[in-house]
Write a protein that binds this DNA or RNA. Structure first.
Lengths: 337, 337
DNA sequence: GTGAAAGCGCTAACAG
DNA sequence: CTGTTAGCGCTTTCAC
């Protein structure tokens, strides 16, 4: 690969000048500029991003920490984040923590500030302490789609009003006349869906309905867990006419459980999820769900991170994305009893 | 962030020595080693990966080019690739080309050899010429899950026997007694599924069945396209008892079309796909499909790429992964007429 | 064993 | 306007 100085000597100038024409800095004579450009073209010169990063003291990469990029929710976020990053001249490194704090910490220690200029953190089971530590070391951190507004994150974050998402789901079910509702709350690992559940409970309370504790299954955030839990719930409480799931994956599992139990959705039982992942519209019946603003959250997260990178020492404000939206599809309908 | 020389002066040695103990190179006196380690610990020193990359002339990153990481097939590949890369001390940069050759070329020009040491290419609509050019510039390229064994790739690649995958699917359907089979072949964009279709046709021929051209829909690789095409196919050919889809997404669309048409799967119509993406096991009925060795392909691709990186000028051999496997689930059954 | 010095490719003052 | 001069933080001969 040709270097700057090779281009320089071909053009009969010095590397500083070449750098200047390439970065459009300083003033360069029109003819030398042309000469340099010709040399660049002739040699097929491309700037060495690693060298540039070292010299500038700033790498053109951002890291995205997720538990697993194969989790159906992350790819859409990652796509939006990568696009936003690239639109700003940055590249995105994807790190799968596998929900293992040790792996996560190792990633942070390795790349934060040394290879990537900042880090976006999705639900990757990283400790706030580790994150604060990497922030103190100079690599900005942005929590993405933060769900616990009451627990001060102590770190910049993009928050989504998951309480409202839960409330919307609850109101939808109640509005349809459902009085016996089962709930699927995940994930067990980090109890991160508590906010959604609280929102749902608040909707019940507001309608004067009470939700008995034993109608809630605390489960993992997966189709399989939703499937099993729904079967158990329906066996214990045959009178249920609806299922509130704190996430789409368990909701989809509930759909399958209903089908395998010979129940018709939504005639016999209504099911609602939260998030609106890709599959939600593709299941049969298509899943009614509360869409969360994933794309805008990703864009905001990248914007916030870039802000923090450009202005070190900035205060760590929390930004909030658009309100979740009910997406009414075919898995919910009026209560029949 | 503390630097090597800061650690060095704390330990009362020179940076070369610190480097030696950290890289476990050369011989270092046991006591100096301990002293250095203590200093590293005390300062919380972490090697600056960008600086190291520049000095070593080798970046610790690999790039993965995909059309869109949100396409349901890529995340599983990306997960496996990232794990394999990280197991070898490399980080993975994800690049979404959006199927746009211009975007793809820009990515290659920017990072290949300057920020990432090599590039993995999934179906990203990049021209072979562009790829060969980046290879010539010194950044190894590995084509992942290459499907056209007859068209010499001229580039190192991991090939999957998609012809056999198609044949397996065809044999399965024929073995079940199906004589009137419709075919969904995608994607239209790059005609990349031809091999799968050929395999399917060969299975028909081997069984003495002929597949009329007008029973094939050439479509995009999506659930929606599969849905529409299945409806059209079924309308034009009501006698069809099975659908062969060259990919799972259209197969899932076919499943939905059958459901919306009031057809029971597999009693009225059998449907088979190829790939075995995550959703395949989650649909109702669960999709019978021919699983492709995604994970091993990803691992082999990373291994090949690392080989090429470590041994420049190596011959570009094609490596082949495991044979596709039939995964019999609930969407296929005996022909009833 | 350990240190001195050069250099990876580029940027960023500062001179001229 | 353009060239000179230092580095960025680390690795790597090559002496001592």
């Amino acid at each position: 690969m040709p270097t700057l100085s090779e281009v320089a000597s071909l053009a009969g100038v010095t590397s500083a000048t070449v750098s200047n024409v390439l970065r459009k800095r300083g003033k360069v004579g029109e003819q030398t500029r042309l000469r340099v450009l010709a040399a660049v073209e002739q040699l097929g010169y491309r700037p060495h991003l690693t060298a540039r990063a070292l010299a500038e003291g700033c790498a053109p990469t951002l890291a995205l920490m997720v538990s697993s990029i194969a989790n159906p929710f992350y790819p859409e976020f990652a796509l939006a984040a990568e696009r936003a990053a690239h639109a700003n001249g940055r590249f995105l490194i994807v790190c799968n923590t596998n929900d293992d704090p040790v792996t996560g910490r190792a990633y942070l220690d390795q790349i934060a500030g040394t290879l990537s200029e900042g880090v976006l953190v999705m639900n990757a089971n990283l400790s706030i302490d580790d994150l604060k530590k990497t922030e103190q070391r100079g690599a900005p951190v942005v929590l993405c789609m933060w769900e616990k507004p009451d627990a001060p994150p102590e770190l910049p974050c993009i928050a989504v009003d998951f309480f409202e998402a839960g409330a919307i789901a609850g109101r939808h079910l109640i509005g349809l006349g459902h009085q016996h509702i089962g709930a699927l709350v995940g994930s067990k690992i980090n109890g991160i869906h508590a906010e959604r559940y609280k929102g749902y409970l608040s909707a019940c309370a507001a309608a004067g309905q009470k939700h008995p504790q034993n109608r809630t299954g605390y489960i993992e955030d997966s189709v399989e867990a939703g499937y099993e839990s729904t079967k158990a719930l329906l066996k214990a409480h045959p009178q249920l006419t609806a299922i509130f799931a704190s996430n789409d994956l368990p909701a989809l599992g509930a759909l399958n459980a209903a089908a395998d139990l010979g129940l018709k959705v939504p005639q016999d039982i209504s099911i609602i999820g939260i998030t609106d992942i890709q599959w939600a519209r593709l299941s049969r019946p298509a899943l009614t769900t509360v869409a969360v603003p994933t794309v805008s959250a990703a864009e905001m997260a990248v914007a916030l991170l870039l802000d923090l990178i450009s202005k070190p020492g900035q205060s760590a404000a929390m930004r909030i994305t658009a309100t979740p939206q009910l997406i009414e599809r075919a898995s919910t309908g009026p209560a029949t009893c």
